[in-house]
């Protein structure tokens, strides 16, 4: 485990993986777009709007996968005081928030032609909305402290508390939704998936995942450099006593 805790080793590993995941992202999403937009039929019930599914559903997957990544990284950060795990959690949050946002907006764009309204309190969309709020809270907390390590630790606890709550929220929202099922609104059922639709869905799903991995690696690299910058700045302050006053402003 601690073999990867060494930032230098991680940086070397990341540099080795990164070109491959970046290339895979381009290829997979390119193929997904071809099969999704051109080489697959329209759904017999939902028509061409079914093509929104190929960006909507993978966004939802990634929105949830990013939160799980954050929670696992947070657990590792709290249990093993793993310095990289903190950075992984902090780096994954904006990516997850972006995907959750995409899921909500594309869901709304899919809902307008299907439900006749931009927003319905559909169980899945509502759960994603709450997940989006959890991301916002996490990011706000991580950036709310003058000392970034304190922010990382506090947000790690929050990510775990949120992660424990996610199934409870999901269950509650599902229950609430069956209780208040509006009669006029038909659910967007997942269309009975034809193999010609499954292929682009999977391609996009894997492509989004490799995109996530690529961006995550770059962000973690960036965070490692940021902490090095902070360390050097701190040392400059301590080594030159005259600079303390100005250093406090910088720090």
């Amino acid at each position: 485990m601690h073999r990867f805790a060494n930032p230098a080793r991680f940086l070397r590993l990341a540099a080795a993986i990164q070109p491959w995941t970046a290339a895979a992202t381009v290829l997979l999403i390119g193929a997904g777009l071809y099969f999704g937009l051109i080489a697959s039929p329209a759904d017999y019930q939902q028509g061409q709007t079914v093509r929104i599914m190929y960006v909507h559903v993978p966004s939802a997957w990634l929105g949830m996968a990013c939160y799980s990544t954050m929670a696992i990284a947070s657990a590792m950060a709290l249990i093993w005081k793993h310095p990289l795990a903190d950075l992984i959690g902090k780096s994954a949050a904006p990516i997850g928030a972006a995907f959750t946002f995409l899921c909500l907006v594309t869901g709304s764009l899919w809902g307008k032609p299907m439900w006749g309204t931009w927003w319905a309190w559909d169980a899945r969309l509502t759960s994603m909305l709450i997940l989006f709020f959890l991301y916002l809270g996490y990011m706000a907390l991580a950036n709310a402290f003058d000392d970034p390590t304190r922010g990382a630790k506090a947000s790690a606890v929050l990510a775990l508390a949120g992660f424990v709550n996610v199934p409870v929220i999901k269950f509650s929202v599902d229950w609430w939704n069956t209780l208040h099922q509006p009669a006029s609104v038909t659910k967007i059922g997942m269309p009975s998936i034809d193999p010609s639709m499954l292929l682009p869905l999977l391609l996009m799903g894997v492509g989004f995942t490799t995109f996530f991995v690529t961006v995550l690696l770059v962000r973690v690299r960036s965070e490692i450099m940021a902490s090095k910058i902070r360390a050097i700045r701190l040392m400059q302050i301590h080594s030159t006593p005259g600079a303390v006053a100005s250093g406090e402003v910088v720090g």
Binding site: G47, R51, V55, L102, T106, L109, K112, F211, M225
Partner: peptide
Amino acid sequence: MGGYASYVWTSYALTAVVMVGLAVSTWRGM
């Protein structure tokens, strides 16, 4: 897109903008 052009293409365009934007801002920050 069978009359649904604005919905389908907006979804794809928005996804492209957000993902490319995220990738570019991450790379620039690094």
